[in-house]
Design a protein around this nucleic acid. Structure first.
Lengths: 146, 146
DNA sequence: ACTTAAGTTTACGTTAACGTAAACGTCAAT
DNA sequence: ATTGACGTTTACGTTAACGTAAACTTAAGT
């Protein structure tokens, strides 16, 4: 059954997005589902595209960037000139991802630290809050150390 | 010399952002540099904040989310109640990051594949572009397989 | 004294990525 | 036949994250 299809709401539910979002992606020519009469019918390929888009979003790519990545799989752009350009894009993208992984690891290290501080503060029962901070919203102009 | 300071343009240059961006962060109370007369003067702590903000951005966090992370380092919010809440936030954030790393690894695997395809296509000299695609901008309504 | 560089505030403009609502079609079930 | 559940198009609204420009001020160099 290699020609399975999906309804718009099924995909929306599966991916935790709204139907509006899916139609929006279509407006942007990121997907082009078939029609059965008036209804949209999504192929596994369409579904895969959405998956790539969402994956891209999670790591901070714009929709256009996701499209660029998806287009890499598109045999249309495969003349020799563009293939070299594409390889460079891949290289660049790879470098971005490497940086992102470093950022994430740094963040995780930071979280470790924060968590330690929390647990430590809880253990020693250090509740230091003398004035009960009566100031509801002091414009937040007062920042703290680090 | 633990009280080094930075000018706005120095930081802008260092981080590859504009001064407008830095002032924008200040508008949002994300940083609060001192003033020397009218000029802003940034402390190492301010600089660290900007670093965290930019790191967050690179992995797709919103500015507010970055602020949330930064606030974890802020001893102000440390009463016992909030400490537990904070630990949960940390936990959740950790899970997000784990997912992001997976996304990145998946992307990297995809890039490997694309690159292989490129090099393979170049090797065999498969230049298939028969009609020279005369169509300037066919509304892009025609999508491709995957 | 003049220019140049860097900084300032205020305000309006812009782009991406949807949300929300109106107004309507379709089909199965009661 | 009507009520939902689900779908559709069209269009205007919204938020985040700045960009851009105007119209200064201040400090430093020549």
């Amino acid at each position: 059954m290699p020609d399975k299809t999906y309804t718009i709401s099924a995909l929306a539910k599966e991916f935790g997005i709204t139907t509006r979002t899916i139609r929006f992606y279509e407006e942007k020519s990121m997907i082009s589902p078939m029609r059965e009469g008036q209804k949209r019918l999504y192929s596994p390929a369409d579904r895969a595209r959405i998956k790539l888009i969402l994956r891209g979003k999670r790591i901070g790519m714009t929709l256009q960037e996701s499209v660029d990545v998806i287009d890499m799989y598109d045999p249309e752009h495969n003349n020799a000139d563009q293939l070299h350009a594409l390889i460079n894009v891949v290289k660049q993208r790879r470098e971005n991802l490497r940086q992102q992984k470093k950022d994430i690891d740094d963040m995780l290290a930071g979280l470790d630290e924060v968590q330690s501080l929390c647990e430590q503060a809880l253990a020693t029962g250090t509740t230091d809050n003398p004035t009960l901070t009566p100031n509801p919203n002091p414009n937040k102009a007062d920042r703290k150390p680090l």
